[in-house]
């Protein structure tokens, strides 16, 4: 039996795979700006620092899949560092951002990489992103240096700009391509993507039901 065009329509209709993604990096490197660019295609010049963790969702079409990113944009300030595990713990993807005009921010990024390698989900897909390439005149981190580091640690690597939009979508789509979906589909049934909620071991049948629907089996 052959299939008509109807089938492609059905394919894009299928349920998306949820991917929890966390953004990490020093304060003011542009994490929130990257998310804002990705989700709303907007940019604000003086974005205030994030105090807390912002939650946003974005769907993405990738070949025959729909990926639903559940994005946690974390606060970069050092004093909040200890709270980060809550957000990267169940993440399947991480975007670690540094500012190409600030060498110290790359160093901070490296410590994040180490921390994730040590403590995060072993299958986590990490992208290292050098932001603010629109400020290339003030560049203080050579492309090659960061790239070499990324290769060494098997990270995806991009230089991008939230301001101009350069490479922003690419970061997320390339990440999306690398994610081991079979595992996610298998795991989604047991995991809740929101940190701290319903992970406290309490058994709540009603909630669990809802969670399952909210996670592994959502439909659009």
């Amino acid at each position: 039996m052959s299939f008509s065009g109807r089938n492609d329509a059905a394919a894009s209709n299928m349920k998306p795979i949820q991917v929890k993604l966390v953004l990490l990096g020093e304060s003011a490197v542009g994490k929130s700006s990257i998310v804002l660019r990705f989700v709303n295609n907007e940019y604000q010049d003086n974005k205030e620092p994030t105090i807390g963790a912002a939650f946003l969702t974005q769907r993405c079409k990738l070949d025959d899949r729909i990926i639903k990113f559940e994005i946690w944009d974390t606060a970069g300030q050092e004093r909040f560092h200890s709270l980060a595990p809550m957000y990267y713990r169940n993440a399947q993807a991480a975007v670690i951002v540094y500012d190409i005009t600030k060498p110290a921010s790359l160093e901070k990024a490296k410590t994040w990489v180490k921390e994730l390698q040590r403590q995060a989900n072993p299958n986590i897909v990490i992208a290292l992103v050098g932001n603010k390439i629109d400020l290339a005149n003030n560049r203080a981190v050579p492309y090659e240096e960061a790239e070499a580091y990324a290769n060494e640690n098997e990270l995806l690597f991009f230089e991008a700009s939230a301001k101009t939009g350069t490479n922003i979508i690419e970061v997320f789509t390339e990440l999306a391509k690398k994610i081991p979906y079979e595992q996610i589909l298998a795991n989604n049934k047991n995991l809740n993507s929101r940190p701290g909620q319903n992970e406290n071991g309490r058994v709540n049948l009603v909630d669990q039901d809802n969670n399952n629907q909210e996670n592994g089996q959502c439909n659009c």
Binding site: M1, F3, N7, A10, A11, N13, M14, K15, I17, D64, R65, Y181, L185, G216, Q217, N219, C220
Partner: peptide
Amino acid sequence: FIPPRDNINGFYNGTGFNKEQFYTE
């Protein structure tokens, strides 16, 4: 119901027929 031949990843999820998909479709 005849499921599409190519069981697209995530479409039927290995758990038999996916009702939600059915409804949407």
